[in-house]
Design a protein around this nucleic acid. Sequence first.
DNA 1: TTGTACGCGTTATCAT
DNA 2: ATGATAACGCGTACAA
Lengths: 332, 332
Amino acid sequence: MGYTLEDIARMAGVSRSTVSRVLNNHPNVRPEVRERVWEVIRRVGYQPHAAARSLATRRSQVLGLVIPEAVSTLFTDPFFPELIRGMTDACYARGYLLTLALFQSPEQGRRLLHRLLSSHAVDGLIVASARLNDPLIPRLLEDGFPFVSIGRHPDPRVSFVDADNVAGARMAVEYLIRRGHTRIATITGPMDMAAAQDRLEGYRQALRARGLPLDRRYIVEGDFTQEGGRAAMQQLLGLQPRPTAVFAASDAMAMGALKAAREAGLRVPGEVTVVGFDDIPQAAYLEPPLTTVRQPIVRMGALAVQLLVEQVERGAQPQRVVLPVELVVRGT
Amino acid sequence: MGYTLEDIARMAGVSRSTVSRVLNNHPNVRPEVRERVWEVIRRVGYQPHAAARSLATRRSQVLGLVIPEAVSTLFTDPFFPELIRGMTDACYARGYLLTLALFQSPEQGRRLLHRLLSSHAVDGLIVASARLNDPLIPRLLEDGFPFVSIGRHPDPRVSFVDADNVAGARMAVEYLIRRGHTRIATITGPMDMAAAQDRLEGYRQALRARGLPLDRRYIVEGDFTQEGGRAAMQQLLGLQPRPTAVFAASDAMAMGALKAAREAGLRVPGEVTVVGFDDIPQAAYLEPPLTTVRQPIVRMGALAVQLLVEQVERGAQPQRVVLPVELVVRGT
DNA sequence: TTGTACGCGTTATCAT
DNA sequence: ATGATAACGCGTACAA
């Protein structure tokens, strides 16, 4: 059941150490010997025992993906599937594995994280916790444990990769302004999330840049869900004067807003226009197809892994990366 | 940096072995000693080094989730997020971790699996490969490597957990029959998937049971996607006589079918009725809300883990579990 | 009931 | 350039 270094050594007529050197690309091995060893390794399909190697190197070659459950139920779009795809590919390319750390309660989270960290099961973590005040971050910081956040975090010591939410929102709202709208409302996400804050900021910037007034009543907080978007839209439709366009900070909320508008008997996009954020698959299939903002999710995942590995292997300093987004203009 | 068994032993005034025995619930330890040791363990938050333990026990305490990429892009519904949630909880409760094995090409899959298995990185696999003829299954069988399939597989040696797709489809179609429909068509999934076959079988059973004729033209193959459902529906709408109801084997296809019906100027559910399968979140928000079939996804994930662990730890025989589904009656 | 000693498969240090 | 040999931290016969 499985060859060991010793087996390979014997078959190649060398010592264990030499095989190990070959495996780890150490310089001091005669080329012909190196080749002979590789030959055997390939022939028998030898793979080093992960645990043994891990015990000796004090590295598990495993990264962990932390997702507080509240987050994952929030997104009905393929955010996590795509993020994970970007991450796994990047992991495998660097010889790492990716393990999951999902939890629904903070308490379960504490226990799991403690176990993960102090059993040396992972070399680093990627934290996909949208809440800015998640206690997890300060804790990891204090432990000095390597991690990268998906989504920005104010503390300068944390590495993160984020989409340019501010610019994306600005683009969306500027698009509405170009189309002649002046009474533009927004439905935000929960304001303890960085993405929600930033998308609101982009909305503000766009209005300010074009010299449009900022009406506080036109800013309604949603929760990134369809139902939340619907409720927020109902509130907006009750205002005088009624906004002619709405920037919803997520496509799910945009869908809810569309529904509310239709329920109120309004033509879309005739009497009111809605744009979203995320570019979920259904966005293109709505009536009318939704104009929205697309983030490079796969790249974000891959980049997070890259930053984390640099941190783990070379003790790299914290890095903050913001990736550009793209306005997808459709029917609305 | 982390305590070792030796440290705990010294602090508790016993030997390494005793601490180990306490940790692993071995019987022969005096209660008072046991308590004293636990005391120390709790106080310092000791966790055994995963790699060291793994090396000694020849068990990694890690399970792998295998997802050929083609599958994960197929589902825009939260199938995988929910499945994963069920799995992780079940894993943690049993002291396991869950690691991901995603790949896009069969070649990448082969390499990854080889690495995973022969490095002893995982004790078992959960295979979420929908294709019946996936070469992965025979290979694992041949290697005698423990695994459980999500979705049934014909080989009697494979353990699986599946939703009762046949019954679900039958319920959906019987519902249409009860509503008075006699010309009922179906849009199937790709026929190399068990779920697609089974849902078609359920459709057939329902018609047969009610003595309705089986018109081959009323069976059109889709691909589980919205676009595929739309194309299939267009084909169905060209038939004479036109079906008055359609059972789509997935909600995504049902959405496409609804779209095609509307594009053809048909009233839904007036002139044509559509029911789906999966109960994706949008199903409830469609106009009209979609009648569909719901599977216990979280339970399936948890059960898969349970079966796998029994197989890994106690060499349990292959088990085949089919979970009941539920008809969700809505507007259509 | 408790402790000693060896083995798990690898890396790394030190001779040669 | 190569080969012994000592860790790495834990489980477990075996001895006491």
